[in-house]
Design a binder for these strands. Structure first.
Lengths: 205, 205
DNA sequence: AATTGTGAATTGATTCACAGCT
DNA sequence: AGCTGTGAATCAATTCACAATT
């Protein structure tokens, strides 16, 4: 078993490196040193190198990394190679704001459906279904990834249904701590909390 | 100098504790143990206690914490006591989605104005001004907190202006690494990255 | 000469274990 | 008896320092 336990933070940073590489490709750059790439990503070069060693050796000593090769490798590592259907559950204030913001629909991701207790909350670009149909939909379309934006009270209940139906990863915008089995991954994004947190750092003149 | 260097993660968690306390208050609970509060917040009780010691001693041995007292203390600690005017810069796709989502306007925060290069992007609830007027506005209204949702290319430039004018903390939704002087705090929220990151954890059946 | 890859050292965060109050 | 507060121990992440490679 090669479970060497890769730190979650490393995986996070790999996504950042990936984005920087994309920009380099656009600019026609062919080779990049750990030094240059790290500074673009806002980390120390040793950290970048250490992060990469979790996945293999991709550089050439004395030279650096081939931008295209590295980008392809990281793509594979991140599993971003294939297509991922995504559902968005909770099409209220925040949910529909997230839909309107198109940023999720890129590079292999597609929000294929919304779900809400009040599905008349219709949305131009994607169909919004009734909550009761979520489980069946997940199973039918083999959805593995879900965005959750329901009120806190409903969150845990909805998550249980999702997980039962086969969802493996959840991007959670509801301000609650979710209980999930350990094979399911949750990324929490708590917008109000982020703002609140900042006010600690605002000090008087 | 009492700079004991409080870990940023602790401050983060304090915001979470605060939210759990709020719920307890609503339910009329008067006292809570570190054990109970920690499990509500999804952390270990020792961690909660350790976090609190950075700010003082608020509990009664053998009993627990008084919910009201603790909540007030944490409020003060987080600087959330007063009123904070907030500006939102970049009223495009994401920016206006964030405005529509009302979640920021609570507990002492108020989004007082938006700024955009194309200010005709008018928005029902708040005035959207021209970008050139941002600096003056920040100075005039003593704005210390800003939400940034401009395209990556523009982000650093806008941030420089903000910081010059006196902004001390930025909630950054632009997918870029921002360069700021060390007295300025940035919280990054990169929605696309969060989703991309999750796909690493989605494994085949 | 430049730059990667990595074991060792360091720094930081979490958890333990228990003394100290109530 | 119950629960907090905390120094000491452990665990995890980062950074250093340098050998290996082109």
């Amino acid at each position: 078993m090669s479970k060497v336990e890769i730190p979650r933070k490393s995986i996070y940073r790999v996504s950042i490196y990936q984005r920087c590489l994309q920009r380099l490709i656009e600019n026609g750059v062919e080779t990049v040193s750990s030094d240059a790439l790290a500074s673009a990503a806002g980390v120390k070069p040793t950290q970048l190198r250490k992060d990469l060693t979790y996945f293999g050796q991709f550089g050439t000593r004395g030279l650096g990394y081939n931008v295209n090769t590295l980008s392809e490798v990281l793509n594979k590592v991140l599993g971003a190679a294939g297509y991922q259907p995504v559902i968005l559950v909770g099409v209220g204030n925040l949910g529909s704001a997230l839909l309107r913001y198109g940023g999720f629909n890129k590079e292999g991701f597609e929000i294929v459906a919304g779900f809400d207790i009040a599905p008349e909350r219709r949305h131009a670009s994607i169909p919004v279904h009734r909550m009761e149909d979520m489980g069946a939909f997940i199973r039918k379309h083999q959805v593995r990834l879900a965005i959750l934006a329901v009120p806190s009270e409903a969150a845990q209940h909805v998550v249980n249904q999702m997980v039962d139906a086969g969802v493996q990863a959840i991007l959670n915008f509801s301000p609650t701590v979710l209980q999930v089995p350990e094979e399911v991954t949750v990324n929490n994004v708590d917008l109000a909390l982020e703002l609140e947190n900042l006010s600690y750092f605002v000090r008087e003149p």
